[in-house]
Simulated scan of single mutants.
Amino acid sequence: MKAAYILNGTVEVGDLPDPVPGKGHALVRTRSCGLCASEAHFLHAGQNVIDLSKQFGGPYAALDQSRPFVPGHEYVGEVIDYGPGSKRPVKPGRKVTSVPIMRQSGSHSVIGFNNDCPGGFGEYMLLDEDMLIEVPSGLDDDLAAMTEPLAVGLEHARRGIPTKEDCALVIGCGAIGLGVIAGLKLMGIAPIVAADYHEDRRAQAIAMGADIAVDPRTLSPYAPIPDLGNRQPNLVYECAGVPGLLQQIIQSVAFGARIVMGGYCMEADSLFVFAAQNKRLTVHFAGGEEAQDMELALRSIADGRVDVLPWIGARIGLSGVGSALAEMSGPLAPVRTVVDPRRL
């Protein structure tokens, strides 16, 4: 199959063996796949991610950078076939997505971050048949590919156990932060405050459902906000993954606040427990999406409750993956670029 793969920290495009499904595997032809910042990490700090997984436990410990691996975990594809003895829950020809986890054959791997579980930057993937979620046939492929990144935000939103009495603050309005805003909006939580340095992302936060979006350089998002009747956020979602930000939040929030850590920080960080204890703060550490989040995300996209079309920028073929990953961290980069691996 044709694929864009990473080998020794470099993106290559070429031919790799077609994956062969075993029992419990669905063979899927990829139709669209989003680019995530987690893939970009492996271009400049891949071995660090692997070493951290080995040291602290994590899904990337078995990844070998000296062998090619095909990234891409935000995908939609068409079922082609199944391995022998499979249950075959979705008919061939139907479109599917899934939580990007493979649990068949005694393994537990993240699809797209395992040498033997190619992701959506290749023409074909193997998916766990127990994880398959059928995609409505009329739903645009690129919109369907936004199911997984939206689901991450939905998981983070509910991890904070929000109530109608909360005033929520979302720090960082990339895909995760926008997904959190969407999740809070679906739960009827208001007001929602968004904070981001970039004007375009603040505008997207408002479009996603935030009541107000602030530039932290001009207005503290932690203080009482005049435009909200001086209400002060008491439920803070950290969606930036920046070292030192947790301590800043701890120092800035009011007594009894709750904090959800959703940003993916891979650097050592420090905090003063003393400060958090004196304020009786609660910190939740959010993880990846679960099946319930994927199903809600897909339904919400399909029925129009969450409009993810503004997230999508360029649609590229395999030859554009390397440059797109290199440029995706800039302030003017789209929330998501999507890859069609059927195109070079």
Rank of each mutant, 00 (worst) to 15 (best):
N8I: 00
E12K: 15
K23F: 11
G24C: 11
H25W: 12
R29V: 02
R29F: 03
S32Y: 07
G34Q: 05
H41Y: 12
L43S: 04
A45E: 15
I50D: 08
I50P: 05
D51R: 09
D51H: 02
D51V: 01
L52T: 07
K54Q: 06
A62W: 06
D64C: 01
S66D: 10
S66W: 00
P68F: 04
F69P: 01
V70I: 11
P71V: 01
E78F: 02
V79N: 02
G85M: 03
G85C: 03
S86L: 09
P89T: 10
P92Y: 06
T97D: 09
V99K: 13
I101K: 15
S105M: 14
G106V: 04
S109F: 10
I111K: 11
F113C: 04
N114K: 05
C117S: 00
L132R: 09
L132N: 05
P136G: 00
L139D: 09
D140K: 14
L143I: 15
L150Q: 04
A151S: 15
A151M: 08
V152M: 09
G153Y: 03
E155I: 00
A157V: 09
R158V: 14
G160Q: 09
G160D: 03
P162I: 05
T163E: 11
A168C: 13
V180I: 15
A182M: 08
G183P: 05
I189W: 10
D200G: 13
Q204P: 07
A205N: 07
A205T: 02
I206Y: 04
A210F: 08
V214D: 05
R217W: 01
I225R: 07
D227S: 12
D227F: 04
L228V: 05
Q232A: 06
Q232T: 14
V236H: 08
E238C: 10
E238F: 06
V260P: 05
F272M: 13
A276T: 08
N278E: 15
R280Q: 15
A286F: 06
Q292E: 15
D293P: 01
D293T: 01
D293N: 11
I301F: 02
I301M: 02
G304L: 03
D307C: 02
W311I: 00
G317T: 10
G317E: 05
G320D: 09
E327D: 14
P331M: 06
V335P: 02
T337W: 02
P341E: 08
